[in-house]
């Protein structure tokens, strides 16, 4: 059974349709990238998948539970299975990096303070930030903030991590480091990753499978491994991978 099932999803902002009849499955342990040009609906799709926006129609199942229109208990249960890293990191500026990671553990578990601290520090070790636990987000570089945000998203051991544009605004070296981290976490922790990105290098480095959206079809134009998409017969798809400007 697929871990994430998206069925006939229609997303609208007012009367403007962004995505129409989008359907796909993601299996447990997969690293899937959602890609496409600016304005094709990547972030909109992500916001629907994490429950921030309700679709006009269609359904999203996570771990067999229907997310759309679910009751409060089911919704809470689904939210515990997912972790999200936002484009800006969205770390709480008034808390240290360690406290940011500690917060969900303190809120949702009854573990004692020592256990919570150990788990939080080990999450930071996993993303290579163990020496920066006492710092505040404003004292970290952009790449470090994103890694800290991944550590926070992993705090409750979600089955799925959603990452929104993890490489945005990062230099190629930092971006490659982040890609390696995602791949390492997927392999060592067995997590499922859904990554919204349009960075070609990242797509090739991390994705088991890529789903490409396009404005012209208001939905999925192609799906497959990054190499398959790069050789796709549709010129929009192959053009994206060849960085060919639109006519």
């Amino acid at each position: 059974m697929a871990l994430i099932e998206v069925r006939d999803l229609v997303c609208r902002y007012g009367s403007r349709t962004i995505l129409r009849d989008v359907s796909f499955d993601i299996a447990a342990g997969e690293v899937v990238t959602i890609l496409g040009g600016s304005g094709c609906g990547k972030s909109t799709l992500l916001k629907h998948m994490i429950g921030l926006i309700s679709p006009a129609s269609g359904g999203i199942c996570i771990g067999g539970d229907e997310f759309i229109g679910s009751d409060a208990n089911t919704r809470q249960c689904i939210l515990r299975r997912i972790g999200v890293m936002y484009q800006s990191g969205a770390l709480f500026g008034s808390m240290s990096v360690l406290d940011n990671v500690r917060l969900p553990l303190e809120t949702f578990t009854r573990l004692d303070a020592a256990a919570i601290e150990l788990i939080a520090r080990l999450k930071l070790r996993l993303v290579g930030l163990e020496d920066f636990a006492a710092l505040f987000p404003a004292e970290l570089s952009g790449g470090m903030q994103k890694r800290a945000a991944i550590a926070r998203a992993m705090a409750l051991d979600p089955q799925i991590l959603f990452l929104d544009e993890p490489s945005a605004g990062l230099d190629p070296v930092t971006s490659a480091g982040l890609d390696a981290l995602i791949r390492r976490l997927a392999e060592s922790q067995g997590m499922t990753f859904v990554v919204v990105t349009h960075e070609l290098a990242s797509i090739h480095a991390i994705a088991d499978r890529a789903i490409m959206l396009d404005r012209s079809v208001q939905g999925i134009i192609a799906s497959g491994t990054p190499d398959e998409l790069a050789r796709h017969a549709n010129p929009i798809v192959s053009g994206f991978f060849l960085r060919k400007p639109e006519d």
């Binding site: 520090r121 163990e130 636990a133 060592s188 067995g190």
Partner: peptide, 21 residues
Amino acid sequence: EENARQLAALQPDKALPVMHT
């Protein structure tokens, strides 16, 4: 094997750094 790999990723032989408050 899988659990051993997860534990190895946390580097159990390496002590956690001392946090200076």
